[in-house]
């Protein structure tokens, strides 16, 4: 099983690194990280905080865009372009195919983030602003990318690339605003409305769990339990999403 998943993953990685979109996004990210220095001169406030905040935000946005734009096409495009047929005619389980696709994109994102982080750190080192806790913030961003990738793969198993990308991006935005459901719930008086808010709060991916940018940039303390919770959340939520993707693909009619 490992071998087959590995073969699919390697091929997915190969496809991604030969995709021009990846490089375009990477160039944008590197440009934005560099541009933060110019921006810090134009705005009021600490130069260091702005450079760090802007850099982390760039890695966040471009990582998610990579996960979405490459992730959503992973399964549905294989069906659309009929490349999936020669693979599934081989002794490979459908869930192995889905897991391989996920692993391949995860590998792409790791490499992608490593390049962005290396550039970011280089800029900071040159300015004497490097802080090792930034690595922690980036690690949690990687956790977030992995979860977004799993969501993209799930949608990709269920619908068309365009719809998948819209839905995944929507979930990413909602996932960062989930605290508002909690807030809303406390202000609502109807029992039904509270129940709906509460269900959505627990059901939708809470990407706030992976966001420690503010704490790192402003030098606030970060509890180790926060990192552990983020890792556990990724494992549980990510596994559930991937299981749903595998189940959806298992009985899908590949017409």
């Amino acid at each position: 099983m490992i071998e087959r998943v590995g073969a699919i993953a390697l091929n997915t990685f190969r496809e991604a690194i030969r995709n021009r979109i990846l490089y375009l996004l990477l160039v944008f990210a590197v440009t934005m990280i560099t541009f933060a220095q110019v921006l810090s001169l134009l705005t009021v406030g600490s130069e260091e905080k702005i450079i760090k905040d802007f850099g982390l935000a760039s890695i966040d946005v471009f990582g998610v865009l990579t996960a979405v734009f490459i992730g959503i096409g992973l399964v549905s495009r294989e069906i659309e372009r009929r490349t999936v047929y020669t693979i599934l005619a081989k002794p490979i389980h459908r869930f192995e195919f889905v897991l391989g696709k996920f692993a391949g994109l995860a590998l792409t994102l790791l490499v992608n983030t490593a390049v962005m982080a290396a550039w970011f750190f280089l800029v900071l080192l040159l300015k004497g602003m490097f802080d090792p806790r930034l690595g922690l913030a980036i690690l949690l961003l990687v956790f977030q990318f992995l979860l977004v990738t799993a969501i993209a793969v799930l949608f990709s198993c269920l619908s068309t690339p365009i719809l998948s990308s819209v839905l995944t991006l929507a979930l990413y935005v909602v996932g960062h605003l989930l605290w508002s459901f909690d807030l809303l719930q406390r202000r609502l008086h109807s029992v039904a409305a509270t129940a709906v808010c509460q269900t959505l709060y627990y059901l939708l991916p809470n990407l706030g769990n992976f966001d420690i940018k503010g704490e790192v940039v402003h030098g606030l303390a970060i509890e180790p339990s926060r990192i552990a919770w983020a890792a556990a959340y990724l494992l549980l939520y990510g596994a559930a999403i991937l299981a749903a993707a595998c189940a959806a693909f298992e009985r899908k009619e590949l017409q």
């Binding site: 030969r18 047929y85 020669t86 005619a89 081989k90 002794p91 490979i92």
Partner: peptide, 18 residues
């Protein structure tokens, strides 16, 4: 069973980057 089968689809499309 697919270990014992070979299959060529109609109008095959393959990974053209390979």
């Amino acid at each position: 069973l697919r270990r014992r089968i070979g299959y060529l689809p109609e109008n095959p499309y393959f990974y053209d980057y390979l």
